[in-house]
Design a protein around this nucleic acid. Sequence first.
DNA 1: TCCAGATCGTTTGACGACAAACGATTGGAA
DNA 2: TTCCAATCGTTTGTCGTCAAACGATCTGGA
Lengths: 150, 150
Amino acid sequence: MPSTTTNHTSAAYFPRLAAERLDIALCRASAAVARAADARAGALGLGVGQHLVLKMLAEVGPSSQRVLSDELRIDRSVMVGICDSLEQAGHVRRERDAADRRAYAVTITDPGRQLLAQAEEAVPEFLDGTFQALSPAERRQLSGILGKLL
Amino acid sequence: MPSTTTNHTSAAYFPRLAAERLDIALCRASAAVARAADARAGALGLGVGQHLVLKMLAEVGPSSQRVLSDELRIDRSVMVGICDSLEQAGHVRRERDAADRRAYAVTITDPGRQLLAQAEEAVPEFLDGTFQALSPAERRQLSGILGKLL
DNA sequence: TCCAGATCGTTTGACGACAAACGATTGGAA
DNA sequence: TTCCAATCGTTTGTCGTCAAACGATCTGGA
């Protein structure tokens, strides 16, 4: 119950709207979660996108920015800035792919792996806090449903 | 573990990520749905926010921009532009609240109700199309889960 | 061989969301 | 009463995201 202000207008309207408009409920919930994720990532000095790039590079191996963009659902033009900052911080190297010199072979460095380990360590606690309103069964349900949507 | 130079995406990485990171799955699904909603609303010449404002005004009666902002989870500064455009199009009137002359009493007009009816008519079809990957039971589950999150 | 089209990474411009600050007005306390 | 903090609507500035266009490079035919 968010006791926001002097609510003179009886019952809140938003819950009704969220029940009727599944798309609005989804967007509003996403915005809240995204804000929490940004705050957490920012506290570590690592953006969400940068975290995901490091994670994918560690699990999949060197990849081009194009593959990173496609798989992480991050626009190409945004990926440029993410890789720029990661490279400048020494967490990533950009080598030209010998087979296709248009593309980079973005590679994670040892400092990058170290930072990733720190960031990954904080993820479970963050997820628990953000989705604490949901039971484990509900989280599995949500995961399956979102998987079908994507 | 990392294969040499990952060139093509034999095994897509994103589904694995989405299964592990519920927050990412939620944000990506929301972005896709939001894009679809924008496209649909734009085709009607009415933004999503404007649609929601008209809908709420029709259901709860004249409201201040503050109440609209709070209940629809739209920032105050964004609400200004939404009400501006609605007023200019004649779908809404802005009258000063006699009890509190700082606030407006935003009121829907008859043309506004007419446009709202058209927009509402297209909503079920849009929802069916957007969430067609989900069974009715899954949609109810998603609705309940999002309700708990919000 | 050469050339047209496609792709990779990048830059640029436009657009929307959010934070902060501002007048106007209200409510409450001294 | 008078004054000060809070609120409503608005404006401004900043930031992140997306579309379009650009050189550099690859690919697939003539």
